[in-house]
Design a protein around this nucleic acid. Structure first.
Lengths: 193, 193, 193, 193
DNA sequence: TATGAATGAGGTTTCATTCAT
DNA sequence: TATGAATGAAACCTCATTCAT
């Protein structure tokens, strides 16, 4: 197994363990066991426990970002773009349900402690939404009364909170329906009148 | 000083310390010092460190709930009700800026471990929003396409995320403007067409 | 209730609690609750927790001693006296089963820390046995091969604790002699005639 | 140094420290220092402080048992066997004087909490004595009036601790009978012939 | 005398991190 | 690179003791 494989495996193990117990309740030894490596090995790839968390964050944000950008590639209509964004977001979250929880928590936790450079990734993610809103405002389908950046925050907050819902409670409502409701709500909210 | 005062002071100190360092990075001794009591005194009022966090949560949710309900007292129009809710929410959050952060961040970590009874308070808070949406749907001002419970989640998520924004970054945008944007966005989102 | 009653009740409570959990696992607060007094009240009657233990020891030894002496009052035959002693000892122990355990433990535990004056009570208890043996030797029913003091120790040890002998008292007698005495005693005891 | 060496050293250190201060007055840090290891190292070999005490007990009982059995190897006469047992017991105790104190004192406190499997070792120790008595009875040198098991108890109690008998094991034999046996044993032991 | 809320020293235990192999 | 035994700092929590009432 190559070194890259091992780093990857540790990262994946960290996601599993962190999301299962929360970052602070997780022990480095658990991550090591889950990854099938010795405790000390983790320190060959990561500076310390917190660095491991940050790398998980970075890795995930980069993945999410590139998926979003790839999905937006051929779309021009801002409304369709927002629909795409929402669906892709839920897809990513669905793929590794606990990951989102880790990220949200980690993001908030670390916001005071994270390097600004690391937060930039989250800013980019918000930026994608904000850009969509701006484009919609430029062609007149979204209301100019909403500040794009604020709107992006609100959209992300709604996505994040809903994702949490089914992470924590029985998904009595199917994902598709939740997703549909959200698209309805947010697009209407932004739409010009 | 009465016992109630002391419990109150410990609770307040916990909010300060937890929100400053995060729950897990906070030491019980710090809370004690901030409250001006001995370490052991905390254990006369709270079972352990986690119980302290939970009591902070309960205390805050009860306060927020009663403020919301008092504010909604004389209002009948669902649209005005939602406006009221949003303003009151930001008022509460503004009063103790770090409090919301403690609750959302730390309780996500603990949410798996919280008693169902404790989560009921959060459910009630969501329920207030959901009821407003239902009322709006009944008199035809809100779209029936949105599931009230899901809508409530989305609204709360948007509020929560925005609150985080100015808790962590310079509030270049005045609160009133953010608030206005949000009202615009969410009311439009719910409004029937 | 008089002060004497209260002291008595605390002492009784201490016996119950100490024998239930052991001295070190017992909390002063538990003794207080069992006695129906406030925690601080105990410190009006006893210097500290260890003093409470010592007073329990003294109190119990005095009770046992007076019971033994009362029972021996009308008896003249050393054989009957020893039988009486053994029976009374078991009676005392049977009456408050946990008490003996507390005493043994306490006696051994504290042997390093107890005042010699407190240990004198235990010496008196042994002395009663030794005197019986001496009397038996004087009238020829007990073997003179056994040192009365040593014999008393062995008897008490069979009743409770032999090994404590050299842990607590100066081994004026060399260990080998003690050993020899013991062999004599036990072999005779077992030997058919 | 091998792992076994380290476990051994911790065990030995525990004996020293526990017997010096008593179990409850001993600090894990003291044991660690005496063993020349870090505090945390102890927890690699023992579950917790109490487990350390139990392991000391087990270790000691196993040592004593094997020494007794080795010493009895070539002896056939029950009288000599009992003499041997007593001498070996005293030898063991003499070698590490404080050890016996730790075991009897501290384990009485913990005896309620010990696993039955751990107590089996003590039962084996008694069994050795009982077997000797039985053999003596079979060839007619020991009185059949004494129940071997009861006799063994008395012997051990004379050696160390009788009272522990009912504190830890079911009194299958009624107390009165135990008492009677004891009278028989001790009176015979003292009686001149 | 009596109370019991408050104190705060200190111990057990955990766990991130290191380093000799 | 990889290991995992060892480290030791640090924190939660307990509980004997005090003292204002």
């Amino acid at each position: 197994m190559s070194a890259k494989d091992k780093r990857r495996r540790i990262l994946d193990a960290a996601v599993q363990v962190f999301s299962r117990n929360g970052f602070f309740n997780s022990k480095v030894a658990h991550v090591a066991r889950e990854a099938g490596v010795a405790d000390g090995t983790i320190y060959l790839y990561f500076k310390n426990k917190e660095d491991l968390l940050i790398q998980v964050f970075i890795d995930t944000m980069e993945t999410a970002l590139s998926k979003q950008q790839a999905a937006l590639e051929g779309i021009t209509d801002p409304v369709e773009k927002l629909q795409s964004f929402i669906h892709v977001h839920f897809d990513v979250v669905k793929a590794t349900p606990n990951l989102a929880e880790v990220l949200t928590v980690e993001l908030r936790q670390s916001s005071k402690f994270m390097r600004g450079s690391d937060l930039r990734l989250f800013g980019q993610y918000l930026g994608v939404i904000a850009r969509i809103i701006e484009e919609g405002q430029e062609i007149g389908v979204f209301s100019r009364l909403v500040n794009p950046r604020t709107g992006a925050r609100a959209v992300f907050g709604a996505l994040d909170e809903l994702q949490l819902e089914w992470a924590t409670s029985d998904p009595a409502q199917p994902v598709s329906e939740v997703c549909g409701n959200l698209v309805e709500l947010l697009l209407n909210g932004l739409r010009a009148r």
